[in-house]
Design a protein around this nucleic acid. Structure first.
Ligand SMILES: [Zn+2]
Ligand SMILES: [Zn+2]
Ligand SMILES: [Zn+2]
Ligand SMILES: [Zn+2]
Lengths: 248, 248
DNA sequence: GTAGGTTCACAGCGTTCA
DNA sequence: TGAACGCTGTGAACCTAC
């Protein structure tokens, strides 16, 4: 990422290690459960009423201390175009070292190697997303949720530890963590921008196709022409592409 | 394809939590996942002894969020670009053993393969339900009965062996087995949550219909426009719906 | 190559209907 | 009761402009 090494963004790493809310083997109050399921449970209120103890010390300030920096560095290779077999949704494997994508290689099955670590969940990551190095899932998650108005509630105390497994279970804490590590929702394209972009891409795509078609045709024509006679030459019946070129 | 649902639900729990900090290599157990989500499965402290404890729970975070995604069809007619050859994960051919079922959406005739085994009755299963891999019937059974207060009696000795045939004969033992293997009634949506969700779905549905109508109209317009001249045609202004369509 | 966006199969919760 | 199916969120795998 030789770019603007935006070092400022990265300060704390996920805290896999600390954060302890001990004693949590409790049973869980089922009526509360319902509320939680609904998302109604108030995080403030007491959550685990257990037979013997109340768990969850509300020590807020879940603040994670800055840890060290992640093993940055990237590396990658070209990408191939085989729309390979898509894998299932929830990855179960994902060992952290040198993970790669691209399952169905074809020909030169190149892969891009993930050597970074998601600052939100700790999963493997390829690059910066919305200002922070994150995995693909957190990137998608952030894009989908950062601009939502709806209040999402954490069933507990807004202190869920987010990691590769837990990330699916508490949207609120995941999102909060995204913001905490510095992801910027302002960088998500607006509806308008998206549509515009889509439009451009479509145009470009069609233009490209058209060009190809034309080029094929004229190739054929050339062949034909060159064979029997050097007769009429077909040329630019085709509009120069400039006319159709995207507006950028 | 990896992921054979063989991992036992409960038992692997402990192990997992023991290794949790080391990295999530390999299959994880979803119930643990929940605990982690809650910040419960925390580091060093407390290992959960497998069998008897109920762990905690809920988070149905999934359902708390509004929003939709583009389930049905996509692909606006005009541009024939489709992300070509994506392979289906579950192909229809060559299944000798997997039972299949038609998977919901997409009218296409694809089916999903059941490669797992219900931990309650042994029938085929597709995925986790309320924290345990179960068949569809046990899933429904559990949802219907887990929260009932009424005391059900076993016609025998409370020791019925539950299998695909016997499961129908003794609700009590079946339910007990459900709990024993780790199904969590806390994960059943509450009445409130259900209603809320239903409401959202209705709203989304209407919105979608409305959108489609509009899009059809503008498509028609485009057709008409493009009739006279072979010029460049304006793409529909209404993009195919994407995940972000609704704003809630 | 990087980092925006898009697709789409799938997980898992609910609902319907015979 | 249970098979079939509807829905939404997730994440892997892609595409593309810069
Ligand atoms: Zn992540
Ligand atoms: Zn939380
Ligand atoms: Zn079963
Ligand atoms: Zn019985």
């Amino acid at each position: 990422m030789g770019y603007d090494g935006d070092e400022s963004t990265r300060d704390s790493l996920t805290d896999f290690s600390a954060t302890r809310l001990d004693g949590f083997d409790s049973e869980f109050d089922s009526s509360l459960a319902h509320r939680i399921a609904l998302g109604i449970a108030n995080s403030a209120s007491q959550v685990y009423t257990n037979s013997s103890k109340t768990i969850n010390s509300p020590t807020n300030a879940n603040h994670n201390n800055p840890n060290n920096s992640p093993p940055e560095q990237q590396q990658s290779s070209s990408s191939s175009h085989s729309y390979g077999n898509r894998k299932r949704t929830y990855s179960t494997a994902s060992n952290s070292s040198g993970v790669t994508s691209n399952g169905g290689d074809k020909g030169g099955g190149e892969k891009r190697t993930a050597t970074k670590v998601c600052r939100v969940c700790g999963d493997k990551a390829f690059s910066y997303n919305f200002n922070v190095i994150t995995c693909e899932s957190c990137k998608a998650f952030f894009r989908r949720n950062a601009n939502k108005d709806k209040e999402i509630r954490c069933p507990f105390n807004d202190q869920c530890d987010i990691n590769i497994v837990s990330r699916r279970f508490c949207q609120r804490c995941r999102l909060q963590k995204c913001f905490r590590v510095g992801m910027k929702k302002e960088w998500i394209m607006s509806e308008e921008a998206r549509l515009e972009k889509k439009q451009r891409i479509l145009e470009n795509r069609e233009r490209r196709i058209a060009e190809k078609r034309i080029s094929d045709v004229s190739e054929t024509v050339n062949e034909i022409q060159s064979r029997p006679e050097p007769a009429i030459k077909l040329q630019s019946t085709i509009p120069a592409k400039s006319e159709f070129t995207n507006t950028m």
